[in-house]
């Protein structure tokens, strides 16, 4: 009996189609609801509509929806890449301390009363600083295995977490403290056209970089000696992967704050659909990650009259889902 097997290309096309649908719907939903055909007309047919409508579409919703898609894709792709690099399905995009570093950068800028742009730049810079520190620390040791990189990531992450706590401790509890706490919970509410214009190319460079070397992550995941015996220059490949993941996640985190669980669970959903081969897993993870975060952000901005922080929603949805994955254990790993 031949089982009907969905081919990879069909799955990927279906997912891209779904992403497109959810993209249109997401631009339509909000406090000022628009119909999907108005949105479609404005975006693709250049139908002129009232200026208030086009203002909502092009200056408010479109940047935010695009940002959500890019952040989701960046976190999912880097999470998948790190899981292969560290041969561990339980690591996420934040394994090397990018979130703690960015959190510290943001807190520092908020304390010094910086503008949104300064907060974002500071978060980006310290995210990169944290990962660079983890990477440099792991290379001090001879051999520099993936395990030392994980450990360095934990050490540097904890160091920056402590600094974040210090910033919170000295912050003014009426003004700067809530701002820091809110930033750490993640939100896309401050996204503007300019944010997307600056961050999008950087995120895309990181994602494309991983996409280019994706098949080699399979070989990395087989083990270090095995990969070297297969002709892989580990130092170069690991450096490429870490660099691409870092610029993608650091720029994602600097516009969204800390959004957890995406980089951990999306690659697992990807594996359930197309298996562990990174040649297929990376494109599928990117699309599912984008889809997932757009939907979560739609909920965040339209469920209540205020904004629900993204990190809270992704954790509330992510944790039970991960429990379900463990229970079902369809993605068999050892």
């Amino acid at each position: 009996m031949r089982r009907f097997v969905l081919t990879y290309k069909f799955i990927l096309l279906m997912l891209i189609f779904l992403l497109f649908v959810v993209f249109l719907v997401s631009v339509a939903v909000g406090r000022y609801p628009l119909s999907v055909d108005v949105v479609f007309g404005a975006l693709f047919l250049h139908n002129s509509s009232e200026s208030v409508v086009s203002n909502i579409i092009f200056n408010i919703r479109l940047p935010r929806v695009i940002a959500a898609m890019l952040v989701g894709a960046a976190l999912a792709v880097s999470g998948a890449a790190f899981q292969g690099l560290f041969k561990n399905p339980l690591v996420s995009s934040y394994q090397l301390g990018v979130s703690s570093g960015a959190g510290f950068g943001a807190a520092l800028a908020i304390l010094s009363a910086g503008s949104t742009v300064i907060v974002q730049s500071s978060a980006f810079i310290f995210g990169i600083v944290a990962v660079s520190a983890s990477f440099a620390m792991s290379r001090i040791y001879k051999g520099s295995s993936a395990l030392t990189l994980v450990l360095s990531g934990i050490i540097i992450g904890s160091f920056f977490s402590a600094l974040v706590s210090l910033m919170q401790y000295i912050a003014d509890p009426r003004e700067t403290l809530p701002a820091i706490v809110f930033w750490l919970m993640g939100s896309l509410s401050s996204v503007t056209v300019d944010t997307v214009r600056v961050a999008a190319p950087v995120i895309l460079i990181g994602i494309v970089g991983i996409f280019v070397v994706r098949w080699r992550i399979n070989i990395l995941a087989m083990g270090e000696d095995e990969a070297r015996a297969l002709g892989i220059d580990l130092r170069i490949l690991v450096a490429i992967i870490v660099a691409c993941c870092t610029i993608a996640t650091a720029s994602a985190v600097c516009i969204s704050g800390i959004v957890g669980w995406v980089g951990l669970i999306i690659p697992h959903i990807g594996r359930m659909l197309v298996g562990p081969d990174y040649k297929k897993l990376i494109p599928v993870s990117a699309v599912i990650g984008a889809f997932y975060l757009v939907v979560i952000d739609d909920i965040a901005r339209s469920l209540t009259s205020g904004e629900i922080p993204l990190g809270i929603l992704t954790a509330l949805v992510g944790t039970p889902f991960f429990g379900y994955l463990l229970w079902k254990a369809k993605t068999s790993w050892s």
Partner: peptide, 23 residues
């Protein structure tokens, strides 16, 4: 280079396990 060497020599490791269920 590693790549050069890999065209000369193929290495079969002892007792290999993989984390991910590659086919």
């Amino acid at each position: 280079s590693r790549k050069d060497l890999a065209t000369y020599a193929g290495f079969l490791p002892q007792l290999h396990v993989s984390t991910f269920p590659f086919s």
